[in-house]
Simulated scan of single mutants.
Amino acid sequence: MSNHPALARRTLGVLATTLLACTGALAVGAPASAHHTAVQGEASCVNGSYRIQWTVRSESAPPDATRFRLVSVASRPTGSKVSAIATSPAGQFPHSVADPVVGVQTVPGSATEARLTVRAQWDNGHTEDSTHEGVVALAGTCADKGGPTGPTATFTSVCASAIDVRLTNPPKAPATQIVLASVPAGSFSQTVALGSGEKKTVRFPVEGWDGVSVTVAGTSEPLATYRWQDPGNCASARVTTRSTCDTFTVVLTDPPNGDRWTVTFPPRVREGP
Rank of each mutant, 00 (worst) to 15 (best):
H126G: 00
A143Q: 15
E113N: 11
F265C: 02
V263S: 07
A162I: 00
Q53M: 09
P174G: 12
E113T: 11
V192R: 01
N124G: 12
N47Y: 10
A162F: 00
S213Y: 04
R51F: 01
V192I: 15
P273N: 07
E198T: 04
F265I: 03
P266G: 12
G208A: 10
V46C: 04
E221L: 05
T168P: 00
P273G: 04
A74R: 11
A65R: 12
V206G: 05
V192D: 03
K145M: 12
T117E: 14
A217T: 00
S88G: 12
S44G: 14
R51M: 03
L167E: 01
F265H: 13
Q177G: 09
V206Q: 05
D246I: 08
R115C: 01
A84C: 02
T240V: 13
G211L: 07
L15G: 11
V165S: 04
N233T: 02
D259R: 10
T78N: 14
S182K: 06
H95G: 08
R119Q: 15
K172F: 04
V14W: 05
L70S: 14
V135Q: 06
G125E: 03
T219R: 03
T106C: 03
N124T: 08
L19S: 09
E113L: 09
T55Q: 11
A43D: 07
A235H: 02
F204R: 04
D64V: 06
G272M: 10
D99Y: 02
G272F: 10
